[in-house]
Amino acid sequence: MVRLAVALVVAACLAACSDKPEPYQWNLPYNIPEPVVPADNPMTKEKVALGRALFYDKALSVNVAQSCASCHKQQFAFAEATRHSTGTTGDKVERNALALVNVAYNGSLTWAHQGLEHIEQQLMIPLFNERPVELGVTGSEGIILARLSSPYYQFLFEEAFGDPEPSWDHIVKALASFVRSLVSFSSPFDHYAYGGQDDALSEQQIQGMNLFFSERMECFHCHGGVNFTQSSKHAYQQLDLRPFHNTGLYNEDGKGAYPESDQGLYTVSFNKADMGKFRAPTLRNIVVSAPYMHDGSVATLAEVIDIYAAGGRGEGITNPHKSPFIKGFSMTDEERDALIAFLQSLTDQQFLHNPDFAKPKTQTFRQND
């Protein structure tokens, strides 16, 4: 009876649905530019809705055990509170899950790949990667598509693409659209810097902000711009400036080598100068997305700051490929506390609790029919 009721509701919706998808309306402050969107995948309300459903659906994995949301949890800024992610079949993923915050503004994607500039490209990795297996789609493409041929998804695909039958092209485009919609510009810092609210930051946070943007600490050189990362593009600025950096975490052989398990940009460029280079992630919502660094090897922000103050970690301080911005600096305990307080001001509670980004309730009804 429940399945029949769902089918009747979907049939009625299909009959009433509009012929043309509705353009997506960005929820951005007036002084924040829109991100760059690929011409072959324009943002629509319907694609975002479909992508949201798919993002939370474990049917997208080979064994129906994981979804995208398994490693990208909203309460952690769509990151994961573990050093390493684990794929749906138990494979260990070497890198720490990146927070999905303002990904639409990223000029490059993943921790260390210069050729991935669009979310549609990046999504192919967790979906189809075989070493390690993440969602494990490869070899089971047809089986997974069959799972998504329910009345619920037929309605969503019809709304988004004008075709009720799921396809991998449409799945990827819908997922990319939802991920692009995950924008965060409502932190206390935003209210202070862009909203004209002088009391949005405490005196301590303002002190930390001044330190952050100082030449002494040089944080802003790698974490600058509207998204607090050099790797950014938007409607007014599309130049991606030196997004990858070696921060002096390792020096395995005294000549600059990083652990064989992950050698950064070098693994795709084969350029020795790229050994240990990783993309500087956004610092927005950084307080809730611990642990830190590409391998999740740093537990707290205080430890991160101490590493940069020392000019690296252990033998990594003498790494010949280390960024010139990681020179080290002196600071007092008061200054460290102020810097952390400023980073806390980048936390956007509205983003972390936005119901539009959460698992859709209708999906639970569909899965239990």
Rank of each mutant, 00 (worst) to 15 (best):
R3P: 14
Y258A: 08
K58W: 03
N106M: 15
N319Y: 03
G248C: 05
V179H: 01
D295P: 03
Y30M: 12
Y192D: 04
P33Q: 07
P324G: 12
Q75D: 06
S181W: 03
R83M: 13
K20E: 13
E120Q: 08
R147Q: 10
F278W: 05
H113Q: 13
A309E: 15
L156P: 00
H294E: 11
F329L: 06
D190L: 08
E158T: 10
W111T: 10
G90W: 10
S261D: 15
D262R: 02
D190F: 06
E203W: 05
F76G: 02
A7Q: 07
R284Y: 13
V133M: 06
K327W: 09
H221F: 15
L135D: 08
I340T: 00
G296L: 06
F161L: 09
I171T: 08
F351V: 02
F342V: 07
L109Y: 04
P259H: 04
L14W: 08
N96C: 05
S108Y: 10
P188V: 10
D262C: 04
F357H: 06
L145I: 09
Y105E: 01
D348R: 07
K277R: 07
L116R: 12
M1A: 11
A257K: 02
A299P: 08
S232D: 13
L156H: 05
G196A: 09
T267C: 12
